[in-house]
Write a protein that binds this DNA or RNA. Structure first.
Length: 270
DNA sequence: CTGAGATCCTGGGGGC
DNA sequence: TGCCCCCAGGATCTCA
């Protein structure tokens, strides 16, 4: 599932390929996947728009448009954003496609149809419910300590809550907790300050390393060129139930927290 | 405000 | 081998 490192990799890829291009036509073959402001038809509203900037916020890719509007794209679990050149065959499961004036195409594909591309108005506070960016100066160890204070929810569930920290999903929550040596079910407010500092460091560190390796292709993820990432090859615990912990050789177990599969070392994560 | 549960989908894995 | 069943999972919404 695309999380922060995967979406960051996609955004960088899109920047290299479609930044500055102009949309000459748009096709929507599954209506619910393309959302426009009231009174606007998505396919019509984006015509003639130039893509002036490309960024990422949490797990969302953001294409800023000349008019001040923006396309905000959520890939959910199986969504893909792939750039194709003139003559390339249709990308499988493409439900929204933007063709540029140079005939290159941005395909938004999603087998499970959970992804969304949303056209938002200039200045619209579309991300007001999203929490702090892990790489921003606002995400300090002290801030993290304050955020966790008094919380009864399992630390794993807290990390997945996009209203608190934006961009962390199941893979990197599991990996960061392993790196910090913390049991995923621990109530957030019970963590010691040293443990929170370790987790803060582990989170930023694992996200950075994953970006360096162009993300994890555990399930369906591919980047803007349709290529897989490399971080799935160096995961310590995620998806490795029954395997041995790379740090202590303890057994890696799978439990369910907040309705999600959770992998951790039963020996060295306290 | 917080947390829990339902919902949306379909490919593919498991069971027989 | 082939067929059927059922589940994973992020964000959003509802409800307590």
């Amino acid at each position: 599932m695309p999380e922060l490192p995967e979406v960051e990799t996609i955004a960088r890829g899109l920047r290299a390929t479609i930044l500055g291009k102009t949309i000459s036509s748009a096709t929507v073959s599954l209506k619910k996947m393309a959302v426009a402001p009231p009174g606007l038809v998505f396919q019509e509203a984006v015509l003639g728009e130039r893509i002036t900037a490309i960024s990422r916020r949490g797990k969302y890719a953001v294409l800023e448009l000349r008019s001040g509007r923006a396309l905000v794209i959520s890939l959910r679990m199986t969504g893909r954003l792939v750039v194709q050149q003139a003559g390339d065959p249709p990308y499988p499961y493409t439900y929204v496609e933007l063709t540029m004036t140079d005939k290159s195409r941005l395909a938004f594909a999603d087998v499970r149809q959970f992804g969304r591309v949303r056209l938002v108005e200039r200045g619209e506070a579309w991300d007001s419910a999203l929490g702090v960016e892990p790489f921003s100066g606002a995400f300090t160890p002290e801030r993290f300590i304050a955020m966790l204070s008094g919380r009864t929810t399992p630390i794993k569930a807290f990390l997945l809550d996009q209203r608190r920290i934006a961009g962390v999903g199941n893979i990197y929550a599991c990996e960061a907790l392993w790196e910090a040596g913390i049991r995923p079910g621990t109530p957030a407010g019970r963590l010691t300050k040293p443990a929170i500092r370790r987790l803060h460091h582990a989170l930023v560190n694992v996200l950075e390393r994953a970006i360096d390796m162009r993300g994890s292709s555990v399930d369906d993820y591919v980047d803007a060129e349709g290529l897989k990432g490399g971080f799935q090859n160096v995961l310590s615990v995620y998806g490795r139930a029954g395997g041995k912990c790379p740090r202590c050789r303890g057994e890696i177990v799978r439990t369910v927290i907040a309705q999600r599969g959770t992998w951790w070392c039963s020996k060295c994560q306290k």
